[in-house]
Design a protein around this nucleic acid. Structure first.
Length: 206
DNA sequence: ACAACGATCAACT
DNA sequence: GTTGATCGTTGTC
């Protein structure tokens, strides 16, 4: 399980670090909610590769979502990082989230501009990475990051764990995955979403 | 070639 | 509780 593990991006810009507090599991072709459900394609082919690599895709035309490939090579699967708690480098996270807002506003009317920026300025620390699209924005990743070896200490984007990251099993809540109603009975309600109960950085109920 | 549709978020009522 | 923004991927013709 990835809950409690640190997501780290370290490069010339600096070091950002966040604790994973919410995830969702996606399986292979049999999972009607998984990107692997159509077999191997150019987009998802990394899902069938060796575990521990990044799979980043664009959703709704504007949000980049980060997944960690799971399972042995040949068995496609991935875990979506739905939310993180910032631990270090939150200035960089804010900067990249602002960059996303600026990108959006270039095709928007003047009216919405300052409102979005002001809101980000008021966004509390623990809410910076509260949502899969926001995780991607905080870490400045896009689909070109697909294939990055997250288990390699030399990768600028990687996973790290420390003894502090051990989570008590009793603190982990389980439920249905979000935003996959199209998958149908038996898959849409499959309890493959995991989060730290009552954690402030976990996405809210809808 | 073309049309439909999301593993979302924020701003509305 | 509803809706608009925005575009690559996928399935269909």
């Amino acid at each position: 399980l990835l809950i409690g593990v640190r997501l780290v991006r370290a490069d010339a810009l600096g070091r950002r670090e966040a604790r994973i507090v919410e995830t969702e599991a996606y399986a292979g072709p049999e999972d009607r909610a998984s990107h692997a459900r159509f077999g191997s394609t150019r987009r998802n082919r990394v899902m069938a590769g060796p575990p521990g690599h990044a799979y980043v895709y664009l959703v709704y035309g504007m949000y980049d979502c980060l997944n960690v490939v799971t399972g042995p090579a040949g068995s496609p699967g991935a875990v979506l990082v739905r939310a993180v708690e910032p631990m270090a480098g939150s200035e960089l996270m804010r900067a990249d989230r602002l960059a996303v807002e600026r990108r959006r506003r270039s095709v928007r009317t003047d009216a919405g501009r300052t409102a979005a920026e002001d809101r980000l300025r008021r966004t509390p620390h623990e809410a910076l990475g509260r949502g899969p699209g926001l995780v991607g924005a905080c870490f400045g990743v896009d689909p070109s990051w697909t294939g990055t070896d997250l288990c390699d200490d030399h990768s600028s984007l990687r996973l790290e764990s420390t003894p502090d990251d051990d989570v008590d099993g009793a603190d982990i809540a389980v439920g249905a995955r979000i935003g996959i109603g199209y998958a149908g009975d038996g898959w849409a309600d499959r309890p493959w979403r995991f989060w730290i109960r009552d954690h402030p950085s976990v996405t809210r109920r809808r």
